[in-house]
Nucleic acid binder design. Structure first.
Length: 593
RNA sequence: GGCGCGGUAGCUCAAUUGGUUAGAGCCCCGGACUGUCGAUCCGGAGGUUGCGGGUUCGAGUCCCGUCCGCGUCGCCA
C-alpha cells in the first residue's frame, strides 16, 4: 500500500505517529508561509499542514500550487491541533498531519465542478462528469447503502438455502410486455437476441430442474420511456421457489424486509406486513401501490350524487359512472381559487378527468362551492358526513369512469399530501397488495392482456371464471409496496398444461404462437414441473426508498438520461460501416409523418 | 407521442414594458499573507444568451422550428 492510514482514520491516540496518506485535495487554504489542505478519500477528511519548521519553502510553494481535486501523497507526523483550533465537524478534527513529504500523484485539471461545492450543478453536467459527481458525499453514501442492501439480501437468502444461478443476458425476444432491446446475431444473420426483461422463464425452468430455491441479482432491460423511478436498465433481486403458495413467498419477503431494514437502517419493521387486496386498494386509494404514510382515503358518494340535481354528478351516476372524492384536512384556506384551477388542469391533463368539483367546509359546518347552489342542503350534509368533513377542510370530487376517478384521485392524493407536508420522510411503510386481476382489456384491440404475465396462476377459487367471466378472475399475484412505490412483484405460476392453454386461449395466443414463443417452457412443464412461484424485487427502488430519495438515478452509479443516453460514454453511438456489414445490417432513416 | 418547466461566463444564478457596454458570487489567473477549516485582502481574465430562422429602429426578453436536460401522462406482460 502507498498509504499507512486512510483519511478518516486518525485520532488523538495516533498523535506522534509517522503516517503516509493518499487522497484528493478537497480544499486548500494558502497563507503563503503555510498551507492547509483538507485531504479526502472515501473514509473521511484529514487536515494536512505544510509549513515550517518541518516543511521547507520549496515544499510549501509546491503545496500552494496544487490544484483542487488532485491526487496527492503526503508523509508526516500526526500532531495535536493548536489550542482552540479543533474542528468539531470532522471525525479527525482533533489532529492534523504535519507534512514532511508532498507528492502530486495526479494533478487535476480545473474541474467543471467540485464535489464539495454547495450549489449542485445541473444533472446533465453531473452525468457527463460522473467520476466527479460520484466523489460527492451523497453519492458515496448512496452507493455504500446500495452495497449494504444487496449484501443483506444475499445473506438472507443464503441463510434460507437459496442457490444463486446466473441466467443468460442474450436471450430470445418475446413480444409480450415491454419492448425488447435487440442484439443482432453475426452468426445468424437477420436473427436477433433480446436482452432479458427479467429472468422469468429461466427461473421457472430452474424449478423444473429441481433447484427448489433460486435467487439472482439480475440485470434487466426494458426499452420503454423513463421516469424518475424508472431506468431502461435496472437490477432485480429475482427469486423463485418450489412447492409454495403466495403466503409462503410473502412470508419469506416479510422476513427479508424486516431484516434488511434492521441491519441496514436500524429500523424496526413489524411483520407480517399488512396486506390489502387489489380491489380494496383501488377502492380506498385509487392505486395498486397506495402510499399508506398518510390517510386522505377515497370516499364514494355516487349514491348521493344520484339524488342531486347537479347535472355533472347526477348524469355521471345515472350512466354507470362514479362520483368519488377525498377530504383534504385543513386545506380550505391553503388553496386559492387559482391553485384549485391548477389542480383542475392537472386532473384534466394528466388523467383525462372532465373537471374537478370541490367544496369548502365552512365554520358553521355547511359546504360552500361555486356549484353548491345546485345541491339541496340535505344532500350536501350527506356528502359532508360521508367524507367526515370538518370546518376548514377542502372536499374534492371527480365524477367519471371508475378508472378516471381512481387515477385522478390517486394523483391528487399524492400531490396534495406532498404539497401539504403530510408525508413523514423517515417512515418506511411496507405492505402487500394481493389478488390482482388476471386480465386487463387492451384499449386499442379490445383484447384481453395478462396483467402480470401469461404464466400467472389464477386463484383456485376463481378458476371457473377463466371461462365465465375473465374480467373478475383474480390472480395469485402480490406486489410489495414501500412508501407508495411498487418495490417488487410476484406470482404463483401455472404448472399444469391445461390451465396454461386456457389462459393462452383467452389471451388470443394460439398453440402455434405459444409454441413458437415459449415452447421451451411449455415443454419443460410437461416433464415434472413442481408447483412454484416467486417474486422480483427492484433493487434500485429499494435503495432509493431506503435512502429516502425521490430519484432512482441517485442510487445508480452510471444512470441514463430520460432519452436513455449515457452522457459520459455517449452511448448509444454510431458504429462502423464494417460492423454493420458483418451483421448484414443497413440503417434506414424513418420517414417523418 | 401529449402536456409542463428549464438552457445566459468553467459552475450557480440575475438582467424592469423589448432599450446604453449582459451583471453578481464561486471557480480560474497574478500578487500579498504562518493557524486556516466557506481563509482573508488587492488586481485580472472570462459571454456567438443551446442552435437555426423570423418580427422590430432595437431581441437574453416576443414568434416559429430544432436540439438537449428534468417532471408527468401514455407506455412499463
Amino acid at each position: 500500500m502507498l498509504r499507512t492510514h486512510t483519511c478518516g482514520q486518525l485520532r488523538k491516540s495516533d498523535v506522534g505517529t509517522e503516517v503516509t496518506l493518499c487522497g484528493w485535495v478537497e480544499s486548500k487554504r494558502d497563507h503563503g508561509g503555510a498551507v492547509f489542505i483538507d485531504l479526502r478519500d472515501r473514509y473521511g477528511l484529514t487536515q494536512v499542514v505544510i509549513g515550517p519548521p518541518e516543511a521547507g519553502s520549496e515544499l510549501i510553494d509546491e503545496a500552494g500550487r496544487v490544484p483542487a481535486e488532485s491526487v496527492i501523497l503526503i508523509r508526516g507526523k500526526v500532531t495535536d491541533r493548536l489550542e482552540g483550533k479543533i474542528n468539531e465537524k470532522l471525525a479527525t478534527g482533533e489532529i492534523e498531519v504535519r507534512s514532511v513529504h508532498f507528492e502530486v500523484l495526479n494533478a487535476c485539471e480545473t474541474p467543471p465542478f467540485t464535489p464539495s461545492q454547495s450549489d449542485l450543478p445541473g444533472e446533465d453536467l453531473r452525468l457527463k462528469y460522473r467520476f466527479l459527481d460520484l466523489r460527492r458525499g451523497e453519492m458515496q453514501r448512496a452507493m455504500f447503502l446500495r452495497s449494504k442492501i444487496v449484501k443483506s439480501m444475499r445473506d438472507y437468502f443464503e441463510k434460507h438455502e437459496f442457490i444463486d444461478v446466473e441466467t443468460p443476458i442474450l436471450g430470445r425476444s418475446t413480444p409480450e410486455g415491454a419492448r425488447d432491446y435487440l442484439v443482432p446475431s453475426r452468426v445468424h444473420p437477420t436473427s436477433f437476441y433480446a436482452l432479458p426483461q427479467s429472468p422469468q422463464l429461466y427461473k421457472q425452468i430452474l424449478m423444473v430442474a429441481g433447484f427448489d430455491r433460486y435467487v439472482q441479482v439480475a440485470k434487466c432491460f426494458r426499452d420503454e420511456d423513463l421516469r424518475a423511478d424508472r431506468q431502461p436498465e435496472f437490477t432485480q433481486l429475482d427469486v423463485e421457489m418450489s412447492f409454495v403458495d403466495a403466503d409462503d413467498v410473502m412470508g419469506l419477503i416479510d422476513g427479508l424486509v424486516a431484516e434488511s431494514a434492521k441491519t441496514v437502517l436500524g429500523k424496526e419493521v413489524s411483520t407480517p406486513l399488512p396486506r390489502m387486496t387489489y380491489s380494496e386498494a383501488m377502492r380506498r386509494f385509487g392505486s395498486d401501490a397506495p402510499d399508506l404514510r398518510f390517510g386522505m382515503e377515497i370516499v364514494d358518494v355516487t349514491a348521493v350524487a344520484k339524488k342531486t340535481e347537479f347535472r355533472v354528478f347526477r348524469g355521471t351516476a345515472d350512466s354507470g359512472g362514479f362520483v368519488r372524492g377525498i377530504a383534504v384536512k385543513d386545506a380550505a384556506t391553503k388553496y386559492s381559487r387559482r391553485q384549485i384551477d391548477e389542480l383542475t388542469e392537472y386532473v384534466k391533463g394528466d388523467f383525462g378527468a372532465k373537471g374537478l368539483a370541490w367544496f369548502r367546509v365552512e365554520d358553521d359546518g355547511t359546504l360552500w362551492s361555486p356549484i353548491s347552489k345546485n345541491f339541496d342542503p340535505e344532500h350536501l350534509a350527506e356528502i359532508k358526513t360521508l367524507l367526515e368533513g370538518e370546518p376548514g377542510d377542502l372536499l374534492m370530487f371527480l365524477a367519471d369512469t371508475w378508472e378516471v376517478t381512481c387515477k385522478g384521485l390517486a394523483g391528487l392524493r399524492k400531490r396534495l399530501a406532498g404539497e401539504l407536508g403530510l408525508i413523514d420522510k423517515d417512515a418506511l411503510h411496507c405492505s402487500w397488495v394481493t389478488e390482482f386481476p388476471m386480465f386487463d382489456r387492451d384499449e386499442e384491440s379490445g383484447r384481453w392482456v395478462a396483467m402480470h404475465h401469461p404464466f400467472t396462476a389464477p386463484l383456485p377459487s376463481d378458476l371457473p371464471l377463466l371461462e365465465e367471466d375473465p374480467q373478475d378472475c383474480r390472480a395469485q399475484a402480490y406486489d410489495l409496496v414501500i412508501n407508495g412505490s411498487e418495490a417488487g412483484g410476484g406470482t404463483v405460476r401455472i404448472h399444469d398444461p391445461a390451465t396454461q392453454s386456457k389462459v393462452f386461449d383467452l389471451l388470443g395466443i394460439d398453440e402455434e404462437t405459444a409454441d413458437d414463443r415459449f415452447g421451451f417452457l411449455l415443454n419443460a412443464l410437461k416433464y415434472g414441473a413442481p408447483p412454484h412461484g416467486g417474486i422480483a424485487l427492484g433493487i434500485d427502488r429499494w435503495v432509493m426508498l431506503f435512502a429516502g430519495l425521490e430519484n432512482i438515478r441517485e442510487v445508480i452509479a452510471f444512470p441514463k438520461t430520460q432519452k436513455a443516453a449515457d452522457l459520459m460514454t455517449e452511448a448509444p453511438g454510431q458504429v462502423d460501416k464494417d460492423q454493420l456489414a458483418e451483421l448484414q445490417l443497413r440503417t434506414v432513416k424513418a420517414k417523418k409523418d
